[in-house]
């Protein structure tokens, strides 16, 4: 008989692929990577290479030969994101350990991409934070960063959030915006993060519901509490977390209303941790905690359009 292929409709496809989604995220992270290299030197590039490379390696090693999944680029995204939330002085050998936990325990153990309940990069960071707290909280200021403060040298290991929380000193907006401050590799430059976020928005890769409700919640609560809301938006890991971590498809609700609730929840937790918690920063744990609530949020906000057909 005729050699015709029979496939189910639709016979047209948008042409989109998972690896294109991941590729766009990688592209969107380029400004943050460049900012990291600019402010923290070539060591940042080395860290990014080790982080991204080791994540891909672990994925390659741990997935069976028939199902190699490194081509979907999700491991590269996880590795790069994890590295961007690490302090620039972190010993290099800790990075592959972080990525192994992120890829292995954060994702593959649940069945791989699409099945992980928590954001793998944040799992990796949380594990490093719990295991090597000193290394994970030692910071340095970029060369030439100005800090109009007495005994500046004694404070060179503090991030703007630490200074604000324990010293009552606030770094200026413009310095925070450009990123000329101490902090995790990719978190310091609001400018670079927003540039990347704009790319994701233009490419329609992220839904603004989560980042906007997240940022708005932090802004409003900080203002109510009498803190400088703009400072709290710009400082720490909030912007990177809101645009790149809290928008992870797999670990956040898919319903529009669920996404808004998710963002608000992240915002409340971040504010609580920043104001009352033991840490100066709370983005990481806020998002992880909300990841855990995500299935429930989705269930609660599910549209109920259909009626069950009457059965005899």
């Amino acid at each position: 008989m005729d050699k015709l292929k029979v496939t189910p409709p639709p016979h047209l496809h948008s042409g989109d692929q998972i690896r294109f989604v991941m590729r766009d995220v990688l592209v969107a992270l380029i400004p943050a990577c460049l900012a990291a290299i600019y402010f923290f030197g070539w060591r940042a590039l080395l860290m990014l290479a080790v982080g991204t490379g080791s994540a891909v390696f672990w994925e390659w090693l741990l997935v069976s030969k028939e199902k190699k999944t490194i081509g979907d680029l999700s491991a590269a995204v996880t590795g790069m994101l994890l590295t961007l939330v690490l302090p620039p002085s972190l010993p290099l050998w800790l990075i592959p350990i972080g990525t192994l936990i992120a890829i292995g325990l954060g994702k593959l153990i649940f069945g791989g991409l699409g099945y992980n309940p928590f954001n793998p990069a944040l799992i990796g960071r949380a594990a490093l934070m719990a295991s090597w707290p000193a290394a994970m909280t030692s910071w340095f200021w970029p060369k030439g960063a100005s800090l109009p403060l007495e005994n500046f040298n004694a404070l060179t290991t503090a991030t703007p959030l630490v200074l604000a929380k324990y010293r009552g000193f606030q770094v200026g907006y413009s310095q925070l915006f450009w990123g000329n401050v101490a902090g995790s590799l990719g978190e310091t430059s609001a400018f670079a993060i927003l540039l990347g976020a704009a790319y994701l928005i233009i490419k329609r890769r992220i839904d603004l519901r989560i980042p906007l409700s997240y940022l708005a919640t932090v802004f409003i609560l900080m203002a109510i509490w009498g803190r400088d809301p703009v400072f709290h938006l710009l400082a720490g890991g909030l912007l990177l977390g809101a645009f790149f971590m809290a928008t992870d498809y797999v670990t956040t609700p898919v319903t529009p209303r669920g996404r808004i609730v998710f963002g608000i929840g992240c915002g409340i937790l971040t504010v609580l941790i920043r104001l009352f918690g033991g840490y100066p920063e709370g983005v990481n744990y806020s998002i992880l905690l909300m990841n855990a609530l995500s299935p429930l949020l989705e269930r609660w906000t599910m549209p109920v359009p259909g009626r069950r057909s009457s059965r005899a």
């Binding site: 692929q17 979907d72 699409g114 099945y115 839904d207 498809y249 797999v250």
Partner: peptide
Amino acid sequence: GPCIRCGR
């Protein structure tokens, strides 16, 4: 591939 829950 696996569903990544992108919501498209």
